[in-house]
Design a protein around this nucleic acid. Structure first.
Lengths: 336, 336
DNA sequence: TTGAAAGCGCTAACAT
DNA sequence: ATGTTAGCGCTTTCAA
């Protein structure tokens, strides 16, 4: 079933069918109805491949999802998919692991699927001009910015929270409660990921509050995984370093940390407070409910689509910084 | 950049370039190398739209993801995406909410994207012949089977766990510990979702163990959401109905139930045991770590791809039943 | 082993 | 307002 068949059945030419299908105004109402009737009757849907072949501009946006497996990205991704579809755009997805090169993948996808633009969800912070060079279409970073590479800010767009500021706020909450020995749980001090920025925010906050930065109070887990966070927290506790509060850079890591603390006889928040950043829905129902800075997931998703469509419409690159909201759980309290 | 350009640059004809690109054997090594050199040099990737237009058979499998938002599906989906890509297939994704009609969406997607097959992730259990009729390509259901509709089993394939048996096992674990008043937390008794099957398994198990089926011990939450599960559990507790254990039909619901129990002064597992089905990674790190029947997520994902490719290869429809594994957490104990 | 040419289904000039 | 027709980039007969 092609438009040729529809044309024949409706007693019109293919171009008329094409016009009807593409909502062109210059078709008489009578003919339009006539054609649509046949289309409906046969459940006809035009061949997308042919359409894309002939239309220089497609309507597909690529989404590269890095750090796959992290539940934090799920609602952001869903929001993106919905926003894209609502605006009449197709999405082409590629899921990557943290170690994969998302920019190389993006370039490949762009050419293979004739993408109009690319949204990078959860990528890295260290793009160079050279890495971005193969990309022929605009791209927007969601949940990250290029803070470490030399790629100019007017070469890409982004939506993210201010990780450093968020970390500062987390530490501030603990400080305001009276904590002076605040430990940190982070995957790495210098992996150019959000963790590094949150580590920075932690350092700056301590400094601002006149607290010493004690390296022995920093648990480096090596990854964002629950298992690694759990192990690193146990090691921190077992090292004997005193601390009355812990700032975990992600909800997931905080959950693992709380279990570790509990198992070493340090109930949260009575013996130790825990705060984090991300705001998974589930951690609102854990014991204790986690106090955390919630990232506006849905907004991150649709803002990145908004940014993309604006770009495709000739708009300039922009960088949006969203503010996380403190979700008061029950994992923080004054020091014992 | 098209194969025409490549042909010109390599000093050969377009058909030769096409042959090289498609790994046809009848090309001399010299020419092949010559062409590949030009292809490499220009990072040429053939236009997929043109390719798909001309090839009667595409290489795209559609994935319809229902019940979007449930974190349980995430690892299954990732496994699918990876399996598909590893075998050289493209994936076209559509995310749906529980209320959407996945079969109608599938039919539309099939024609718009020229799909070869469709995988339904997390759909319903009540397909009729009429609903499946518009589908012109084979489909496989992942995590569900058609237990309520009249669609014949040889019209589709499936991979899932035996929900009823899993529920039975969950109840059995509680029974073996000595529990005789076992409550149930379920979204609905008759929504044709996995919950209904697990409800059935619960009923059958009680019957087999000679335990009465007390309707007042069944908390119906209305949905799979944390918030609803939390409310329903509070209502169950507040109703005064005695119970020493609770079987929640999903991990997520169990987490919410544990918090509710805790807040009403019934610590888990000392005062009340809780068991569930699904096996989210996170619930292994909650307090207490959840005892649950873990669904083999990765296997569900790649088995559904396996089934699909087998079907596309002329194979017959099959129905695979996987067995969940008991993950011993710390949320169950003998009754107080 | 290689090349020439037809045609996949569609859109968009251009004609009428 | 409607029809005719030339491609879009590719694969695949069919010839050489």
């Amino acid at each position: 079933m092609t438009i040729k068949d529809i044309a024949r059945l409706a007693g019109v030419s293919v171009s008329t069918v094409s016009r009807v299908l593409n909502h062109h105004p210059d078709v008489s109402e009578a003919i339009r109805a006539q054609v649509l009737a046949v289309v409906e009757e046969h459940h006809f849907i035009p061949n997308t491949a042919a359409r894309r072949l002939v239309q220089p501009q497609g309507n597909t946006v690529g989404v590269i999802r890095s750090g796959n497996g992290d539940p934090f990205y799920a609602p952001i991704f869903s929001a993106m998919e919905e926003a894209l579809r609502a605006r009449g755009w197709r999405m082409c997805l590629r899921q990557l692991h943290y170690s994969d090169d998302e920019l190389a993948c993006a370039a490949e996808l762009e050419r293979a699927e004739r993408l109009r633009g690319i949204i990078l969800l959860g990528g890295r912070f260290d793009y160079s001009e050279a890495m971005a060079a193969p990309l022929g279409v605009p791209f927007v970073c969601c949940t990250h910015r290029n803070l470490f590479g030399d790629l100019s800010p007017d070469r890409y767009s982004s939506v993210a929270i201010d990780d450093e500021a968020a970390a500062w706020r987390a530490v501030e909450v603990l400080y305001a409660l009276g904590h002076r020995s605040i430990a940190l749980l982070v995957p790495s001090r210098q992996d150019h990921s959000p963790g590094e920025l949150r580590f920075r925010g932690y350092c700056r906050a301590l400094e601002a509050f006149g607290l010493p930065l004690a390296p022995e109070r920093i648990a480096v887990s090596g990854s964002y995984s629950l298992a690694d966070a759990y192990r690193a927290t146990l090691a921190l506790i077992d090292s004997g370093t005193p601390f009355t509060a812990l700032f975990a850079v992600s909800d997931l890591m905080a959950a693992a940390a709380i279990r570790a603390l509990h198992e070493r006889g340090r109930p949260v928040p009575r013996d130790c407070s825990v705060i984090a950043i991300d705001g998974l829905e589930l951690t609102e129902y854990t014991l204790p409910p986690l106090t955390t800075l919630v990232q506006p997931a849905a907004e991150l998703g649709w803002q990145s689509v908004e940014l993309m469509l604006d770009l495709l419409d000739g708009g300039a690159h922009r960088h949006i910084l969203l503010t996380p909201e403190l979700r008061a759980g029950a994992s923080v309290a004054p020091p014992p």
